[in-house]
């Protein structure tokens, strides 16, 4: 039972983090709070993928003794899985691009309606 909890608890904390972002996206009425919730959601997904890649007793995905002429055999089990790192590297940059476009739209909304609260914007649209 203790091994079960130790093996799984970080997945549960990542899910709680993701749900905090989801709740902020759904129920907060301020537009910048919604964007902060979206940021938390995306980082929770990224941290989940990185924790899949972790291996016990392995080193960083940078080859040791790489320029010795190949005397040391390279075994895949002694290096951390590099593939999720690459995919999440792409995802972080796309996350910041999404954040920039969303904030540009928020600034445009503020210029037109002079508020960031959803209820007041809806009242002014009518």
């Amino acid at each position: 039972m203790f091994d079960f909890i130790v093996g799984k608890y970080n997945y549960w904390i990542h899910i709680i983090l993701m749900m905090i972002g989801f709740y902020a996206m759904m129920s907060k009425r301020n537009l910048i709070k919604k964007i902060i919730g979206m940021n938390i959601f995306q980082t929770a997904i990224i941290i989940f993928f990185i924790s899949i890649a972790a291996k016990r007793g392995a080193t960083l995905p940078i080859l040791e003794h790489a320029h010795d002429g190949g005397e040391h055999a390279i075994e895949a089990i002694s290096y951390i899985n590099p593939l999720p790192h690459v995919l999440m590297l792409t995802a972080i940059v796309v996350m910041v691009a999404t954040l920039g476009v969303a904030l540009a739209v928020v600034i445009l909304v503020y210029r037109k309606y002079d508020t960031l609260e959803e209820a007041e914007i809806l009242k002014k649209i009518k």
Binding site: D3, V6, G7, K8, N10, Y11, S51, I52, A53, A54, K55, R56, G57, A58, A76, I77, N81, L83, P84
Partner: peptide, 13 residues
């Protein structure tokens, strides 16, 4: 049902 965190024999690796 997921493998434990840090297990070197996961299907992902």
């Amino acid at each position: 049902d997921m493998p434990d965190c840090g297990n070197p024999d996961t299907p992902a690796s």
